[in-house]
Write a protein that binds this DNA or RNA. Structure first.
Lengths: 220, 220
DNA sequence: CATTTGTGATAGTAATACTATTATTTTTGT
DNA sequence: ACAAAAATAATAGTATTACTATCACAAATG
């Protein structure tokens, strides 16, 4: 039984989950994006990997930029779902926030509720490439097309928890978007520029840092 | 009287500050990078803008990726210098940290000491494009070549202040690199995705947020 | 004044990011 | 089971990009 994750339909021409070859584009595409990185990734190479042609892939995705946006959107869709599970049946707002921070800043783990196969790889792609997806001259158009709704609604709903806990705190959205972005940054630093951080792949400190900030900054 | 800002020599073939045309490459290049964004920026277009040829620009810079790295490095060189000025003759570590946070997360202003013409434009480029410079398959090589030394030494020296003020705080580097990155992110959000933040171009809250975090998190 | 060095002009190449065409296969509705 | 519609594979082609190479000329340098 599969849970379907919402990905904005403006991101594709033809739904890749609706066909065999579409699913192959996704699974091989994730792999190739990770292996090559966004700049070296091409539809031609992907087509060779799935024994198909460029033209076929272009029928699903407008270009590789949209393909990346699709993957990132998918990731945030998974996180949305996991947030839902992590806060359901929890009445205390503090506890809801704690659980949410765990989901947003922690590492994927097959044991947690709502885990999906692709989450690990997608997270790697988000860490490595999401800056390139966002920081484009097209952001404003894409935002208008609702492409960042998944992400914005995550920030918005967790910020609501912050407001409930401490209505006097003046920067709820900033706090949450910061913690989310920071988690990804620090994980990147930990691998490539370890002197910029105090976390490491062996001993993860990102979640602890995030909890600490929340705890110190919010009064309740 | 000009203060010379250090930019790592591994970033260029020929020092662009050593000739008329090199300086034109820099000044017009900054402008064009801002106008077009990294992906649409090409050496051909830049060559046309300065009435020269691609070949000439390639004699200064290996490619546009290195050109961007050069600009970012230049920016951090300016910030390094401003940090120096902002902490000189200040004896109290707390005050030094406060001043440093101001420099790192505040907006360029012609009135502050050490201000340079290019700072404003360079900061815009850092906000928009620095993710693309860093999140590359070449980070590790570039790091080995000392390309991030400016940035790393900034984080390191400000983190030292944190350690002086609160030796028990376990994440000094993470705290500082977070505040630096966050400032740029939030400024990007404020323009393009305002619902993710609580700052706006009209009413800047980034510095206040940063001070708040420092104040709440460090014990002294 | 001779030599090195930098520049401009021009040409050329491989790869990328697509678009277009057509024949063939697969799916679908009846 | 069969006709019609849709999806795919194969192939070709185009504009742009990111370079590299060559060479003649000008400027700076020692």
């Amino acid at each position: 039984m599969n849970i379907s994750i919402q990905v904005s339909a403006t991101l594709y021409h033809k739904d890749p989950t609706s066909s065999e070859i579409g699913l192959k584009i996704l699974s091989e595409g994730i792999q190739l994006m990770q292996d090559l990185g966004f700049e070296a990734f091409t539809f031609k190479k992907l087509a060779q990997n799935i024994q198909s042609t460029e033209a076929t892939i272009y029928r699903y995705f407008e270009n590789k930029h949209y393909f990346l946006l699709y993957l990132i959107n998918w990731y945030w869709g998974i996180i949305s779902y996991r947030l839902l599970l992590a806060t359901a049946n929890v009445t205390d707002a503090r506890q809801q926030l704690t659980n949410s921070i765990e989901v947003l800043t922690g590492l994927p783990d097959a044991s947690h509720p709502g885990y999906m196969e692709e989450e690990m790889q997608l997270k790697q792609i988000v860490i490595q490439e999401s800056g390139k997806a966002l920081h484009t001259k097209m952001v404003d158009d894409e935002n208008q097309n609702g492409i960042y709704l998944n992400y914005k609604s995550i920030v918005s709903s967790v910020a609501e928890l912050v407001k409930t806990i401490d209505p006097s705190f003046p920067y709820p959205e900033m706090l949450i978007s910061n913690l989310i972005e920071n988690a990804n940054h620090q994980r990147f630093f930990s691998v490539h520029l370890p002197r910029l951080t105090n976390t490491s792949p062996e001993q993860d400190a990102v979640v602890a840092f995030s909890h600490l900030i929340i705890q110190k900054v919010l009064q309740s």
